[in-house]
Structure formats: structure tokens, C-alpha cells
């Protein structure tokens, strides 16, 4: 279905992803967990080429792409068969909720405006926002914005949906409503990759949990075996810190800042920037 093979990624001198191999079957829900700065988001962003890996392969629905020789068509193939929900929602600011969902249907999938509108309304209805379709993002709460973002992603009927810490930017009281919508998504049978700090949620919805540390997949398996019976000492340590060790994993190590800084200096594929040699 979707498979990453031997993926390597650097931010400057920092080796963010080391020989990542991950295969996700059709309809499977995979949760990626790990400490801040471990490369979880970067891994997810490689799947739709928001990050350009240095090397490796990605296979999606039978088409294999070599990250060393990516064409414009490859990028569009990836972005048009995946959809992403961002931590910061990233709704189009000058479009209404309806406009946000319609945009991809009209511009990318070339659907008729009226067909797109009906589809967008249906998707917004599904996330409980029928009465907010004409609101602009800044008139919506964080939770509402993220639900619009989920509707926007689902409307495109992607083969794979990618959630990048979808609840991390939300006020605590809004986390529940968004998780509820995501649960619905995972139950609909769509292939899902979700990077999350919500361990209980991961345990509930995931078919498989992948633990990432320092750019490597350290351990993977069924939620029960990862959460209740982790074999690797790093996994154990991490889970202790998150679930009961007192210190929160949400306070990132100093390294995180450097990583974000390096990321901002990377070439931007969506601007058409080329990778420097």
C-alpha cells in the first residue's frame, strides 16, 4: 500500500532519519510515537514530499519512487494520493471553511463547482460544522479549524491520510472533539498514519504502533505489546516519562530548536526550489 524503504534524511549535519523502513497495509492505522526531535514529523512529511529525503524509496499503490531522482510528476502523484492534517491546521486564511474544502476539488481534481460544493458541504457536515461553512478560519476555534482541515483532507479521497500531531496545538478542552473526528476517520477503513503524543488515543485506534528515537525505528508492534510490554529499554524509558514518570515529554530538548531552524533552511519543494548538490 504505502511503503518507505531505506529513507535517509539530513537537516544540515544533523542526521534526522536513519534507514527508515516502514510498510503500511491498506486500511491499516499506524501510530508513530517518540520523543520530540526524534524525526516523527519529518518521517510523515517525507511521505508527501514536504521534506526531500536524501535517499530511499517510497512505494504507493504499486508505483515506486526513488527519492534521489524525483520528477514533478512523482511529487504530484504523492501529493494527490495522500492528504495531510497539520499541527497548526494551515487552513487557507482568505477562504471560508467551505472554500477550503472546495479548493482542492475544483483546482486539483477539476470537479464542477456545483459538484465540489455538494461534496464539500457533505464533508463539513460529517465533521459537525454545517453551521460554520461560511466562516473564515480566524472566526473559528482551534478545534473547529482542525475539523475543517480534516474535512479538506478527506474530501480529496486520498489513499492515505497523514496526521501530524493533530491535537498538539489545541487548547485542552478541544482535544476531545478532534480526537472523536479522527477516530471516525480511522474506523472508516482509510489507511492512516498518525504522529501523536496522545498515548491513550494511539493505543485505542492504532493497529500498529511505531516507536521512533533519534531517527531510527526502535520498536514496532501491536499497541498492546508496545505499551504493556516494550522490549527495548529506550521505548520503556520514553513510555515511563510520558505516562507516569512525572516530567512531561512535551517540553522538548534543546536540540529541537536547532532542528526546526535547520528545517527552515531546507529547499522548499512546493516553491519549486531545487535541492542543492
Amino acid at each position: 500500500m504505502i511503503e518507505l524503504k531505506n529513507v535517509e534524511k539530513y537537516f544540515g549535519a544533523h542526521h534526522v532519519l536513519r534507514d527508515i523502513n516502514l510498510k503500511v497495509e491498506k486500511g491499516e492505522v499506524v501510530a508513530i510515537i517518540g520523543p520530540s526531535g526524534s524525526g516523527k514529523s519529518t518521517l510523515l512529511r517525507c511521505a508527501n514530499y514536504l521534506e526531500m529525503p536524501a535517499e530511499g524509496f517510497i512505494a504507493l499503490n504499486g508505483r515506486t519512487i526513488d527519492f534521489r531522482h524525483v520528477t514533478k510528476h512523482d511529487i504530484l502523484y504523492l501529493t494527490r494520493n495522500t492528504a495531510m492534517v497539520f499541527q497548526q491546521y494551515n487552513l487557507f486564511k482568505n477562504k471560508t471553511a467551505l472554500g477550503n474544502v472546495e479548493e482542492g476539488l475544483v483546482v486539483v481534481q477539476k470537479k464542477d463547482r456545483s459538484v465540489a460544493r455538494a461534496e464539500a458541504l457533505r464533508r463539513l457536515d460529517a465533521v459537525g460544522l454545517t453551521d460554520r461553512v461560511n466562516y473564515y478560519p480566524r472566526q473559528l476555534s482551534g478545534g473547529q479549524q482542525q475539523r475543517v482541515a480534516i474535512a479538506r483532507a478527506l474530501a480529496l479521497n486520498p489513499a492515505v491520510i497523514l496526521f501530524d500531531e493533530p491535537t498538539s496545538a489545541l487548547d485542552p478542552e478541544m482535544v476531545g472533539e478532534v480526537l472523536e473526528v479522527i477516530r471516525g476517520v480511522t474506523e472508516s477503513g482509510i489507511t492512516t498514519l498518525i504522529v501523536t503524543h496522545e498515548m491513550n488515543f494511539a493505543r485505542e485506534v492504532a493497529d500498529r504502533v511505531v516507536f521512533l528515537d533519534d531517527g531510527c525505528i526502535v520498536e514496532e508492534g501491536a499497541p498492546v505489546s508496545i505499551f504493556d510490554n516494550p522490549r527495548n529499554s529506550r521505548t520503556r524509558q520514553f513510555l515511563e516519562r510520558v505516562t507516569g514518570g512525572g516530567r512531561s515529554v512535551l517540553s522538548p530538548p534543546a536540540r529541537e530548536d536547532a532542528t526546526v531552524y535547520e528545517r527552515d533552511r531546507q529547499p522548499r519543494a512546493w516553491l519549486g526550489e531545487e535541492r542543492s548538490a
Binding site: L50, R80, M84, E103, V107, W270
Partner: peptide
């Protein structure tokens, strides 16, 4: 223009040109 706007345009499958004309330019013009 917020980087996330371009990332969102990319993620829904727009070409760089479509993203520039449909999303980034209208916001940049303001």
C-alpha cells in the same frame, strides 16, 4: 506569507504554480 499556507497547498496536490496563483499571491497582495 505563512509557510504553512504553501505547505497546505502542496499537500492537497497543487502544482507550485497553482499554489502561487491561488493561495500565496492573494495573501501576499494584501
Amino acid at each position: 506569507v505563512d509557510r504553512g499556507q504553501a505547505e497546505a497547498a502542496h499537500s492537497i496536490g497543487m502544482t507550485p504554480m497553482q499554489a502561487m496563483i491561488r493561495i500565496i499571491m492573494p495573501e501576499a497582495l494584501k
